[in-house]
Simulated assay, not measured.
Amino acid sequence: MSLTDALIALLIAGFALYAIYDEAILPRRNGPTKLRVALRRRHKIDSAIFIVLLLILLWNNIDNHGTQLTTNLLMVLCFMSVWLFWIRSPKLLMKESGLFYGVVWIDYRRIQSMNLSEDGILVMQLEQRRLLIAVKQLDDLERIYTTLVEAR
């Protein structure tokens, strides 16, 4: 196994660990999930560029008669990238005492103010940072508000 194959395998393992954590472990952390809200995808162009670059690497490996292991690893990495960036939907998990935005835990006590922008993005102001929560369906904003009011 070459260094390239080892790095690709390491990247695949990292993607797999993130997927397992996001889908299986995160919903069970910090108590039961009260509300699960689908979010809009961001960075579509970046992920598309990454997938296209992987496909170029795959094509180059096949064209130059590279090893079968490298070809298989690149195909698995392409599949996982498509699944993580395009098929899987990002989500907001609201718990009893806080929420998971991405994979970051945010306690409700850290939220100092909330505003709603004109294009339907919920802006939560924390101590030193703003969260921009773009939901897929505008009805979810009311459900988020109701859950936050019940928690306080």
Rank of each mutant, 00 (worst) to 15 (best):
S2K: 05
S2Y: 13
T4Q: 10
T4K: 07
D5H: 04
D5P: 01
A6W: 03
L7Q: 09
L10Y: 04
I12E: 00
G14A: 12
A16T: 10
L17P: 03
L17C: 12
L17A: 15
Y18S: 14
A19C: 05
A19R: 02
Y21V: 01
D22C: 02
D22Q: 09
A24Q: 14
A24H: 09
A24E: 07
P27H: 07
R29P: 10
N30F: 02
G31L: 01
P32Y: 01
K34G: 09
V37D: 02
A38W: 08
L39P: 07
R40M: 07
R41C: 03
R42D: 03
H43T: 11
I45E: 04
I45M: 12
I45L: 15
I49A: 11
F50I: 09
F50D: 11
I51V: 11
I51G: 06
V52T: 15
V52P: 06
L54G: 07
L54C: 05
I56R: 04
L57F: 13
N60A: 15
D63M: 10
D63Q: 11
D63A: 12
D63W: 12
N64W: 10
N64L: 07
N64R: 15
G66K: 10
G66D: 10
T67L: 02
Q68D: 01
Q68Y: 14
Q68E: 12
T70S: 15
T71I: 13
T71L: 05
N72K: 08
N72H: 08
N72T: 10
L73R: 00
L74W: 08
L77W: 05
L77S: 11
C78S: 04
F79G: 12
M80I: 10
L84M: 03
L84D: 07
L84Y: 09
L84Q: 06
I87C: 02
S89M: 08
S89D: 04
P90K: 03
M94P: 00
E96V: 06
S97I: 08
S97G: 05
G98P: 13
Y101N: 02
V103R: 07
W105G: 00
W105T: 02
Y108E: 08
M114K: 15
N115R: 14
E118R: 13
E118L: 10
D119W: 02
G120Q: 11
L122R: 14
L122V: 15
V123G: 08
M124P: 09
Q125L: 14
Q125E: 15
Q125F: 10
L126H: 07
R129L: 13
I133V: 09
K136Q: 05
K136L: 06
Q137N: 08
L138N: 14
L138Q: 14
L138C: 01
L138F: 04
L138W: 13
L141T: 01
R143P: 00
T146P: 00
T147R: 06
A151Q: 08
R152A: 05
